[in-house]
């Protein structure tokens, strides 16, 4: 099915794709038809820089269980990072 579930969030960082590192300006998160994974539908997460064209993206497709685990892990690591006092 076509879900059309999609949200975007501004991002600051960099991602490494086939052509090396590039700045990331947006993270796109969706749940729709999978392309590269075995799932019918998947969490579609792209780290992208639209100014560099459609190919400037690092894409992953995950199942929902992995997405939830990733959220918890991100929260845990962010909490530890903030506690460490190390600057970004």
């Amino acid at each position: 099915m076509c879900t059309n579930i999609h949200e975007s969030v501004p991002a600051a960082g960099a991602a490494k794709g086939g052509a090396g590192w590039f700045p990331v300006s947006v993270a796109n998160v969706g749940f729709d038809h999978a392309v590269g994974s075995r799932f019918d539908h998947a969490l579609l997460i792209d780290f992208a820089d639209p100014a560099r064209g459609p190919s400037a993206r690092v894409a992953v497709e995950l199942d929902l269980e992995t997405g939830r685990a990733l959220m918890a892990t991100l929260a845990s690591v962010i909490e530890a990072a903030e506690s460490s006092g190390a600057p970004v």
């Binding site: 796109n28 392309v35 792209d46 992208a48 639209p50 459609p54 190919s55 993206r57």
Partner: peptide, 12 residues
């Protein structure tokens, strides 16, 4: 670009 990259750009 490759079709899935362009589709991702359109989706975004």
């Amino acid at each position: 670009g490759e079709p899935d990259d362009v589709a991702a750009a359109a989706r975004a």
